[in-house]
Each structure stands twice: as C-alpha cells, then as structure tokens.
Design a binder for these strands. Structure first.
Lengths: 184, 184
DNA sequence: GTTTGCATGTAAACGGTTACATGATTGG
DNA sequence: CCAATCATGTAACCGTTTACATGCAAAC
C-alpha cells in the first residue's frame, strides 16, 4: 500500500503527527506489512492536506519545531475506502538473504554461517514485534495479521535453525567433520 | 537484490538471453524471492555489457528480432561475489491484503470473504511454484530456499483457512448466523 | 558530554514499473 | 482466427529512499 493510504488508515484511529505515524509504521501491527520513511510521509501529508483529505492544526511545541497534528476528513474516509475497494496490489517479498543462499555453493562456509546467524536474529526480532502486536490486538483483523506473521516467520525460523546445524560455523572446528563440504 | 546482481547470478548458471532471465525470475527457484520486468532487465544487461561484466553474442533468429545471448566474464564473477559480500539489504515484505485486514472492521463482510479467497488462491499458486522448484532443486541452498518458502506460505495459508471459517461469505446465508458481525 | 528521542522538512538520486512499439511462429 | 509464446527495446513516470539541514530536551 502506498504511503498516502497508510497515513489515511492510521488517522482513522485518531489524530496524529507525521512523526507518530512513522513510529507506528515502524513498530506496531503494521510493522511487518508496510514500511515508510519520513521522506515519504511528510510530503504525503502535505499533499493529502492540499487535497482536503486531511486537515492540520499546529500545536506550538516546547522547543524545537512546532507539532503538526493531522485529522482525517469525511472525504479522506471515502478516499480510504475507495483504496480498499478495487484490486489490491499483490504481495511482494524480496529477500537478499534467500537470493544469496541460492548461490551458497559459491560462498565460503564461514560467510554462509554468518548470514544465517544474521537472518536468524532478524527473524527473532520480527517475531518479538509481532508478539507485542498480538498482545495488544483489539480486533479480529489485527489478530489475523499478527497470527499470520507469527506462523510465517516462526515456520521459516524453524527451517533455518535446522539447516544451520548442517553448516560448519567457520571459526570453531565444525561439530562433525563429516558435514564439511555439505554445501558443495 | 538489484536486477544487475540477479542477472549476474543467473548467468553464472550458463549463457542466457534477457527473455530467458525473465522467465527464470518469474517461475524458478527465484520466483518468490525476487521480481524483475523486461523494462529493468534489458537496460541492466546493456549496462553490464558496457562495463565488461558480461559479453553478448548475437544469434540470428528465425523471424522476429535477433537473439542476444549473454555470458558472464571473470570480472562479472568478481562483481557478483562482491555484491554478496558486504551487508545485504534487509528482507522486505509488503502486503496490501494484510494491510486491508487491519481495517476489516470497516469492510463489508462480503468484501472480506472475497479478499481472503483471493489471497488463499495466491498463496496456493506460490506454493505450487515452490513445490516445483523443490523437486528440481540441485543444491542444499536451493532446497533451503524452497523449504523456507513452503514452510512460510504453508503456515500462513493454514491460519488464513482457519480464519475464513469465521467470516460470513456474503452471498450464501452464513453457515451459522451466530457468527455474523464477528468482525465488528 | 554524548547519545537518544522528539519534530519537521527538502532535493536529488535511484531503481523500477508501465505502456508502448514491432513482428514472426505455434497451438488451440 | 485468435491467443499465446518468443524476442527486444525505449521513454515517461512513479514512489521511495537517502542525505542533508536544523535544533531543543532529557537521559545516561
């Protein structure tokens, strides 16, 4: 989903600043489903304001720049609903890690092990975020999203952990020399 | 991974045309890990040729445009290995479907059911591609990629199918009227 | 005293998609 | 006869990221 629609969706849950939208996209239930940086959020909010889909009110802040709090308008709600009608863009998943694994036979065993360990850590981080989201999930929709994430990442993690056991770690002597070269 | 690196990686497996690279990215082991359209592949191959990372030989074709068959050069191999050293970009997953599910309470039950059915079909299609890839997988790396994909999508599918049972389908009378409004 | 968090924004660059243009061959 | 497959390419557009610019307050 484009940043515009993400902003509208979050504003449905109450007034927010661009900064708060960023935080929510980064750490909430949306975290594993969407991404958005300041560089896309701020211009999106400006444009939404020009189009009358949101309104701003400026709150003077104690030091630093003033806060701009956005609210969604009735037209904004309509635009959001329109975005969820019609055909949705297909899911897309990109993984440089999995791409690299396809060429594991060209990598040094130590490198493979290091990549797997990094990926394992990344998966665990995502699972932690999802578990938090699941705990605070209020609607069946939120629970579905969290549970699908947990199931997917959990299953991937288990496969990866199993595979890790067959890869020599590179620094220590491999657990079993018989496994050396398994990836060639 | 950028299209450049994907092209180099595939050429490692033998000479190919841009068209063949496209097919492989679309249907092979890479299918659920990477995407690339003609509009990015052809310019990438042109640039790689200019940089000496690949070479072309032109094969006259029986009708239609001539075939351009690309081969990777030793410098190309080095460039590929360099791309797999350093830090890899993080995985990214975007799902308009899951985003929409977060706002399920604003959707009509029929729409929710329709979206779920579409998503279920999409997951099954991906699983079919992965199963094919798994059958022809030659290296442990390819098997890992396919098995992680199967585990992830399979787990997601099961959660989704369970959830589907709780959603009134919209057209027929719901299996149990007691379930109506479950999403509100 | 340095890092982290709060808070906003801009401009250039990037990588990629979409649509268009062309045309023969093969299979249903 | 029409659709799909083979086969290449360009150009305009798109959304987004990255890097930069600024600055206070609180926590460590």
């Amino acid at each position: 989903m484009d940043v515009r629609t993400v902003c509208l969706g979050l504003l449905l849950g109450g007034d927010r600043t661009g900064y708060e939208i960023r935080k929510q996209v980064d750490a909430g239930a949306l975290a594993h489903v969407t991404e958005a940086s300041f560089g896309s959020i701020y211009p999106a909010l400006t444009r939404l304001t020009q189009e009358g889909l949101v309104t701003v009110r400026v709150e003077p802040a104690r030091g630093g720049p003033e806060k701009k709090v956005y609210s969604i308008t009735p037209e904004g709600r309509l635009a959001f609903e329109a975005a969820l009608s019609g055909d949705l863009p297909e899911d897309r998943f990109r993984s440089a890690f999995l791409f690299a694994m396809l060429f594991a036979d060209r990598l040094q065993p130590g490198r493979i092990a290091a990549l797997i360990d990094l990926q394992t850590a990344a998966l665990r981080r995502k699972l932690a975020i999802i578990d938090t989201a699941l705990r605070v999930a209020a609607t069946p929709g939120e629970r579905l999203v969290a549970e699908m994430g947990r199931a997917s990442y959990g299953a991937a993690l288990r496969v990866l952990e199993d595979f890790r056991l067959t890869v020599p770690s590179g620094r220590a002597a491999a657990p079993a020399a018989a496994l050396e070269g398994q990836l060639l």
